[in-house]
Write a protein that binds this DNA or RNA. Structure first.
Length: 312
RNA sequence: GCCGAGGUAGCUCAGUUGGUAGAGCACUUGACUGAAAAUCAAGGUGUCACCAGUUCGAUUCUGGUCCUCGGCA
């Protein structure tokens, strides 16, 4: 198979990506490759709005439930696994639908980011974290200026996490990180479908969805996670809502406050997500998710498929 | 009804010894190449309750009015 179609369904949390992509994947013999940094964790179902088991059965899904909440997960692992999933779908003659709300993951896959292999050194990283606390963030940034002025220019000194990552890359590879920001775009035929809704509608949907999650037993889910003794600071437990409900369960916050905080953080998240995919991006076909969108998108996909070069 | 406290940004409040005002949060925008639901940055906002007086000038001082919250009847 030499034509490699990939259909990306993008949009903020709560806009309705899951429902629509399920219908589309059904219709076009697709498989869903999740692009979501929280759906990878087993046992985090309700609060992540993970597709149900029935839904996962209806259409083949990838990159859901692939690690434990205590495990390490990152962009490099995602990119590798997504690459495999996409290739396998193609080999089966299926169209992979890249669906999710993690802009970094989607962009990395579609643009073919190639971060240096094996550039992680957790010990070095934590020693820098200690230094940042003891000597201040300016100190680390000054060091970055010396080894890589280009990165130092791009990264705000106060963004300690990123300054440290840049120093870490240099420490492991011996090269300035700015020279390692390479893209090698994959040879996919890409269609990007964007789903959107006006902010106020989106916010209202989110508020309602949080209520539904609570009724569905979100608290119990968080309680179970707490019983697993996940290490402090594990990315999984930094998920919106999970962190707040954990605080409530540990007696550090009122439930009302935890839920209000969750709504607030979700709204901020929606705005941050919007930075990855802009309404004026000519490579994205945007649709407002109201009555009849699915038909509109189907027409659009059908037309597009006809233009994809096929094997002779 | 009396006594006390107060009315300043969407919210919680600070402040101006008289020169028309500011923090946090909310909200909006942006960055992002191995934590990304993470991390970080930038930004606007006001009849300073109302009316009058003193003053070159009042949100600030004085008087009155209205409203809110306590306490007492």
């Amino acid at each position: 198979m030499n034509h490699k179609p990939v259909i990306a369904i993008i949009g903020p949390t709560g806009v309705g990506k899951t429902a629509i992509s399920l219908g589309l994947a059904d219709m076009y013999k697709g498989e869903i490759v999740s692009a979501d940094s929280r759906l990878v964790y087993r046992g985090m179902n309700i609060g992540t709005a993970k597709p149900t088991l029935a839904e996962q059965k209806r259409v083949r899904h990838h990159l859901i439930d692939v690690v434990e909440p205590a495990d390490d997960w990152n962009l490099a692992k995602y990119q590798f696994a997504a690459g495999v999933a996409i290739e396998n779908s193609h080999n089966r003659g299926k169209i992979p639908f890249l669906v999710g709300g993690t802009g970094q993951y989607i962009t990395a896959v579609l643009e073919g980011w190639t971060p240096p292999p094996k550039s992680q050194d957790i010990d070095y990283r934590s020693s820098l974290e200690t230094q940042a606390q003891e000597m201040g963030y300016e100190n680390l940034h000054r060091r970055l200026e010396i080894i890589d002025p280009v990165s130092a220019e791009r990264i705000d000194a106060r963004n300690v996490r990123r300054v440290i990552r840049a120093l870490e890359i240099h420490h492991v590879t011996g090269l300035p990180p700015s020279q390692l920001r390479i893209k090698s775009p994959p040879d996919f035929e890409i269609l990007k479908i964007g789903l959107m809704l006006p902010r106020d509608q989106l916010y209202a949907r989110i508020d309602a969805r949080i209520e539904e999650m609570m009724e569905a037993g979100w608290l119990d889910e968080v309680e179970t996670l707490l019983s697993l003794n996940i290490p402090q600071g594990a990315p999984s437990m930094s998920a919106i809502g999970y962190a707040q409900l954990a605080e409530y369960l540990q007696g550090d916050m009122e439930l009302d406050e935890a839920l209000a905080e969750t709504r607030r953080l979700t709204r901020q998240f929606i705005r941050r997500q919007a930075n990855w995919f802009k309404p004026d991006d000519p490579s994205i076909l945007w649709f407002t998710n109201d009555e009849g969108v699915e038909e509109e998108i189907e027409r659009c996909i059908s037309t597009w498929i006809d233009t994809v070069p096929t094997e002779a």
